[in-house]
Each structure stands twice: as structure tokens, then as C-alpha cells.
Design a binder for these strands. Structure first.
Length: 608
RNA sequence: GCCGGUGUAGCUCAAUGGUAGAGCAGCUGAUUUGUAAUCAGCAGGUUGCAGGUUCAAAUCCUGUCGCCGGCUCCA
């Protein structure tokens, strides 16, 4: 169980190394050095996956081979095997792998005509390999052999198994054949390999570090939020968690006001007819919660757009009013599969920082650019630079015409191009109502989570018959842009906690200052200091427990409280404060008013 | 939802078929402390839940719920 985390953490390591890898790959392209190739972790790891498959088949001859690639941070191999593999089995497999490495088998490549290869793998009773070859268009395929093990593979590989110096099998998990829920579930073994034991050890060490910054643990330790069996996937925000969220939302509202957004609020439960009209009934039903009111069917909203459309339609609009930027910090509920719930990062109810922009067709690009500019500004303000952008296009199951989709995709692409933003293209991954640009941020384990999204929608205005009166006095169809920037407030909080390892920036800290007394007789003065800080809207607490100052400092450090104000004989006498920061800086005898001003200024400027 | 794992005090973990324990947190008292844990005492559990096997179940079996890691899906 613990090992499972390892796979993901490796991504964190590798993200750092990626730059180096890139440089390597470029130089390889120039001289295609065989030796350099051999230094690439992906080659090492792919070779390790072959060695693992060999070990598995030697221990469990009934295991059929599926696929076994190197991944960003290690490798895996999928097996069709009736016996469930346990941690003990992984240890046995590792031992068998070591034997193979000690034998130092050569990796040998061979090319086979397609038909011969199919025959070959049929004879070895490897149906998954046969299926793979049948799907490969090429006339010839390559196989790699080491010892008695043969696998369909394009390579390249190490020279021999002996070059695998440090590896570890990390976890076993289920995975559908070809990622298809309707196909058979296979057993996937994850592992990793490095060129030296030191690298492997340091990786495992950092894995342990990463576990410490899991937002779920910090939520408990810092008393920010909790989950309960009574509502799986539904987060409970505690008072301190709410303080953080309020700070986030205050800032969010300020930035939105500046950019011409208006805020609305729409009901959580709405008549089923509305959802049929919007298309959610048809396309999103399995993710929705339903209820009955006075014999009528209602649904709990999974999205805010239909409600916003009702507001838009509540009166006649002129082209002069557009764009209308209608925002809502809306509580949405989505029935997610139980197996995907993950702390605050994947929940069943969350606040979406949503907005719908109703605009003229010729305003689309400018509006999209405005949204992207705002999303990047928000991320920067929260201290994020590690995000990536993806553009997703028309899926199979969708509403709207081909032409609408082409227009919509074109506008998004152009906006990204104008802003010179690099992005990854995801063909067929768009929402059912339009193409989208997504912004992803990574968690401490290297997992990438979608936050911001900008989705163009030429279809919803049709369904709701939205219109505006143009310059020509005729009715026209507005364009609708859905967008969320932080995405889910809960998810964003989770990511923030991991990003800062719980030491949130001052302006977001649930407790910004803790006043602590050296002895009981200083409580009164400490309360006075507290009062003064509270008057200035600073989040402050007093710790006047009957404990040593060392203990109080320790507790505050563990809670990562930005400022510790220490009150003793000296401070009371001089009417001053002594301040320790969570970074260990210590300043004695400060003037309270000066300290207060400094803190206020830092909060205002969003600096730590 | 699927595959595998897992569930003992608020938290972290012991107890491998024979009387459920520890540290931290909590409470009480002593101590009145100068920058990462003062000392002592007390309290805290139908071992997730429901069945079953057994003279005896935290421990073995079945079911169920939650959680963890993946798969799939998504903010």
C-alpha cells in the first residue's frame, strides 16, 4: 500500500530531471549515439520491465503478457493472471529478477514478418501480443529476446540485463486491457529502476517526504477540514479551513470585479425539465443526483450554466450590453465513482468558481484571451508556476453541428497562439457541449489535477434559444463561454496545501499571528495585543496555556504559523513585542504598532 | 463502478485463536517557565458494521460500509 505512492512521487523527481533529459535527447538527435541512448532512464526502465515479465512468467507460467512500457517515472507490466499478486509475491519476483540480472543475459533484437510474428506468439499462447500485432499496420515487427524470454517490442534496450543496477517493485494494481472498462481487468505491477542504488535510495527517501505533505494529513493536523463516513466525498470545512477559503474568495471576487464580472447565485435544486433542455439529462445523467418535490422530478445541479441561462433569458438583451460576464461561486454536486474519491482533490460536492460569458461572435477571441490572462494572474498570485495547458477537441458523444465545433476550436487555438502559450492537444476529449482549454496543476505526488477550464459553447444558446437585439434591430444568437479558473475551491485548497507543505502564504494563513505568554501573569497583556491585532482584521490567537515557551513555540512551528509574538516580563515592562517567524528569525522588543503595520502591509501585498 | 490492499483510543501504531496496550493529544494537579516537547496522575475501545466457525475471535470465514493505491471518468 505504502509502495503504491512511490510510483507517483517519482514524477516529482523526474520533473526536476526532465530538463536534463531534454538536453540529452536533443544532442542524441544530432549524433544518434548508441552509448548515450543507453544512459536514458526510459531505456533502463523498459529493460527492467522485460526482466520483470520474465520473472513473473517463470514464477507463474500461466501469466499471459499484455503490455509493459517505461513510464515517466518507472515502468509497469500488465499480466493476465488468475492469482492475485501480493506484496510477498513482489518480493519473490524481485529475487527472481536479481537472478536474471546476475546472469547478465544479452538483449537481442530480431525482425519478423507480421504473419510469422503472429504465428510465433500464437504458438507461445500469448493472445494479447497477437492482438497487438494484428493492430499494427507494419509489415515487419521487432521482437527482443533475453535468456528464454521473448517479447514484442520496438526497443531500444540495454545491452544486457546486468546493466540494471538498482530497481524496486512498488505496487500492484488493476488495469483494464487497453484501458477499456468493458475489457478484462489485468494485474499491473509498477516498479522503478535507476542507474545507481544512491539514486533509488534518495528517490525512496523523497517519497517519504512527499507523504508528509499529503493535503489529507495536513487537513487533519492543521484542523482545516474532515471527511466522514456519513458523507463520503463530501468535505466538511472546519473554522480554520473556512478562514483560508474566505481569503481565497475575497481575492477572487476583487479580481473579478476589476475585470467586469457580475456575480449571481442560482438554486442548487432545479426541475428535471431544465436538465433535459440543457442536454445534461442525456449526457450527464449518470453523474447527477435526483430528488422528488411535490410529485415532480428535480435534479441537484452538477453545473451552473442552465441557471445562468434562465437569468440571461429573464429579459431582452441588446448588443450594447455584451459581453455579459456572469459569475457564480456555485455549489455543484456530481456523483463520482466511489473508487476515484481522493481527499479534497476529488470530491462529490464542491464550489466551482464558475462564470458564463455571453458575447458577440466577434468578441470571442478577446474574451478568451481575457480569461486566460485572468487565470494566469490568479495562479501567479497563489504562487503557482508549475501548470500546463491542454486543448481538447470534439468528442464522439456531443451536441452541436460540425461547423459550430470547427469555429469554436479555431477561436480557442487562436487565443492560445496570440498569447504564445504552449499546449498539449487532446483530440476527442472536449466536453459534450464544446471544445475546451484546461489548466492543470500537479500535486505533491506528481499527479496532475485539472483546475481552470475555458469551454466554448455554440450549442447551449440554441437549446435555450438565447438571443440579443443587434444593431440591425434583428435577433441574433450570442456565444456562450463557460469558464472556471481555480476550478474547484476545495481542490485548489488541497493543491495549495501540498504546494506549500501546509505553510500557506501569510495572506492565506488560517492563523497569521499567535501570541504566546512566558508565564501566566502575562495573559492580560497578551489579550491586549490580541485585541489590537484583531481590530486590524489579522487572524490571531493567544496561547496562554500553562506550558513552557519552548513547547508553545514548537506547537506553533508544527502548525506553521507565520508569526509568533512572545510576551514575557521584558515586553510587558517596555510595552513591546518580541516576534519569531516560522523561518526561525527572531526580533526582540519591537513596537507593537510597527509590527502590526508590517504584517498588514505583507498581507496586503500577498507576501510571506 | 472494476482490481488489489486495508480498517484497533482523537492521531501514530502494538497485541498472529487464550484477560486489548504504548506514545502523542485530552482532562486534573504540581511547576511559572525566554524561542521546536517540564513532571505526575486520570480518563479514553462492544477492535468499522452484520452474520458465521470455535470452549474461546482484534486475529479465521462470508457479507457490507469506509479508507488507501491503481484502472476508468472528471473540476
Amino acid at each position: 500500500m505504502r509502495l503504491g505512492l512511490a510510483i507517483w512521487f517519482q514524477k516529482v523527481l523526474l520533473r526536476r530531471k526532465r530538463r536534463q533529459d531534454m538536453v540529452e535527447e536533443i544532442s542524441e538527435d544530432r549524433n544518434l549515439s548508441e552509448d548515450k541512448n543507453k544512459e536514458r532512464p526510459s531505456i533502463l526502465r523498459h529493460s527492467a520491465s522485460h526482466v520483470m515479465a520474465q520473472a513473473v512468467q517463470s514464477l507463474y507460467p500461466q501469466a499471459r503478457l499484455a503490455i509493459g512500457p517505461a513510464i515517466e517515472d518507472g515502468f509497469y507490466y500488465d499480466f493476465d493472471l488468475d492469482k492475485p499478486l501480493s506484496a510477498d509475491d513482489l518480493a519473490r519476483i524481485e529475487i527472481r529478477m536479481r537472478e536474471s540480472i546476475a546472469q547478465d543475459y544479452q538483449f537481442a533484437r530480431k525482425e519478423l514478418p507480421r504473419e510469422k510474428a503472429i504465428e510465433f506468439f500464437k504458438k507461445r499462447d500469448e493472445p494479447y501480443k497477437v492482438e497487438l500485432i494484428q493492430d499494427i499496420g507494419a509489415e515487419t515487427v521487432s521482437i527482443y529476446r533475453h535468456g528464454d524470454f521473448v517479447d514484442l517490442c520496438t526497443g531500444p534496450h540495454l545491452d544486457s540485463t546486468g546493466q540494471i543496477k538498482a530497481f524496486k517493485l512498488l505496487s500492484v494494481a488493476g488495469a483494464y486491457w487497453r484501458g477499456d472498462v468493458k475489457k478484462k481487468m489485468l494485474q499491473r505491477i509498477y516498479g522503478t529502476a535507476f542507474f545507481s542504488q544512491e539514486e533509488l535510495d534518495s528517490y525512496l527517501e523523497q517519497l517519504e517526504e512527499a507523504r508528509k505533505r499529503d493535503h489529507r494529513k495536513m487537513g487533519r493536523d492543521l484542523d482545516l477540514f474532515s471527511f466522514h463516513d456519513e458523507g463520503p466525498g463530501f468535505p466538511f470545512l472546519h473554522p480554520k479551513g473556512m478562514v483560508v477559503v474566505s481569503s481565497m474568495l475575497d481575492f477572487w471576487r476583487e479580481e473579478h470585479k476589476k475585470r467586469g464580472y457580475v456575480e449571481v447565485r442560482t438554486p442548487i435544486i432545479l426541475n428535471k425539465e431544465l436538465w433535459i433542455k440543457s442536454g445534461h439529462w442525456e449526457h450527464y445523467k449518470e453523474n447527477m443526483y435526483f430528488t422528488k418535490i411535490d410529485e415532480q422530478d428535480y435534479a441537484v445541479k452538477p453545473m451552473n450554466c442552465p441557471g445562468h441561462n434562465l437569468i440571461y433569458k429573464s429579459k431582452q438583451h441588446s448588443y450594447r450590453e455584451l459581453p455579459i460576464r456572469m459569475s457564480e461561486l456555485g455549489l455543484v454536486h456530481r456523483h463520482e465513482l466511489s473508487g476515484v474519491l481522493h481527499g479534497l482533490l476529488r470530491v462529490r460536492a464542491f464550489i466551482q468558481d464558475d462564470a458564463h460569458i455571453y458575447c458577440l461572435p466577434e468578441q470571442v477571441k478577446e474574451e478568451v484571451i481575457g480569461v486566460i490572462d485572468l487565470v494566469l494572474h490568479l495562479y501567479r498570485s497563489f504562487g503557482f508556476s508549475d501548470y500546463h495547458v491542454e486543448l481538447s477537441t470534439k468528442p464522439e458523444k456531443c451536441i452541436g453541428s460540425e461547423e459550430m465545433w470547427a469555429d469554436a476550436e479555431g477561436s480557442l487555438q487562436e487565443a492560445l497562439k496570440d498569447l504564445e502559450i504552449e499546449y498539449k492537444l487532446n483530440p476527442g476529449e472536449g466536453a459534450f457541449y464544446g471544445p475546451k482549454i484546461d489548466f492543470h496543476i500537479r500535486d505533491c505526488m506528481g499527479r496532475s489535477w485539472q483546475c481552470g477550464t475555458v469551454q466554448l459553447d455554440f450549442a447551449m444558446p440554441e437549446r435555450f434559444d438565447l438571443d440579443y437585439v443587434g444593431e440591425d434591430g434583428c435577433r441574433h444568437r450570442p456565444v456562450m463561454i463557460h469558464r472556471a479558473l481555480l476550478g474547484s475551491i476545495e481542490r485548489f485548497l488541497g493543491i495549495l496545501l501540498e504546494h506549500y507543505a501546509g505553510a500557506l502564504p501569510l495572506w492565506l494563513s488560517p492563523v497569521q499571528v499567535r501570541v504566546m505568554t512566558i508565564g501566566e501573569r502575562f495573559s492580560e497583556y497578551a489579550r491586549k495585543v490580541e485585541r489590537r491585532l484583531k481590530d486590524e482584521d489579522i487572524q490571531v490567537e493567544v496561547d496562554d496555556r500553562n506550558e513552557s515557551i519552548a513547547k508553545k513555540v514548537r506547537d506553533a512551528q508544527v502548525e506553521k504559523i507565520p508569526y509568533m509574538v512572545i510576551i514575557g516580563e521584558n515586553e510587558v515592562k517596555k510595552g513591546s513585542v518580541s516576534v519569531r517567524t516560522r523561518f526561525g528569525e527572531d526580533k526582540r522588543d519591537l513596537n507593537l504598532e510597527e509590527f502590526l503595520e508590517k504584517v498588514k502591509e505583507k498581507i496586503g501585498n500577498k507576501v510571506s
